[in-house]
């Protein structure tokens, strides 16, 4: 599988990672290496192996449905850059 420089830029943009022009080709080379390793691994017959979603063979523990958290918004907001009327203020985002 080969990757293009445009795809590298697109992925970087989706992940909000800033990639300057010179870095692009270096990252492309590194990712291409990773992909070739994956390609190698894909030659292994895994038809009898179920996909692993977690590295440990343990199961999710569940929490009882109860309210255990109290209102601490003042404490949390004391480190926020900007707050008004209990709201966190962020740079304007409208799609």
């Amino acid at each position: 599988m080969s990757l293009s420089l445009d795809e590298v830029k697109r992925i970087a943009n989706l992940a909000r990672i800033e990639v300057v022009e010179e870095e692009g080709s270096a990252i492309l080379a590194q990712l291409t290496d990773i992909f070739s390793l994956i390609e190698q691994m894909q030659a292994v017959d895994t038809s009898a192996v179920s996909p692993m979603s977690h590295s440990q063979d343990v199961r999710q523990r569940l929490r009882e449905d109860a309210v255990t958290e109290m209102d601490q918004h003042e404490l949390f907001q004391s480190i926020a850059p900007q707050v008004e009327m209990g709201l966190y203020l962020v740079p304007k985002v409208i799609e």
């Binding site: 929490r63 449905d65 109860a66 309210v67 255990t68 958290e69 209102d71 918004h73 949390f76 709201l87």
Partner: peptide, 29 residues
């Protein structure tokens, strides 16, 4: 219709004042 959130112990009650029911997990600290 749970009392608490899906991944935290904060309340899900409707109409609370802003961020009164947002705990550390909900804030992604």
């Amino acid at each position: 219709s749970t009392r608490s959130k899906i991944f935290s112990g904060a309340s899900t009650a409707y109409g609370a004042s802003p961020n009164a029911q947002a705990c550390t997990v909900d804030l992604a600290l």
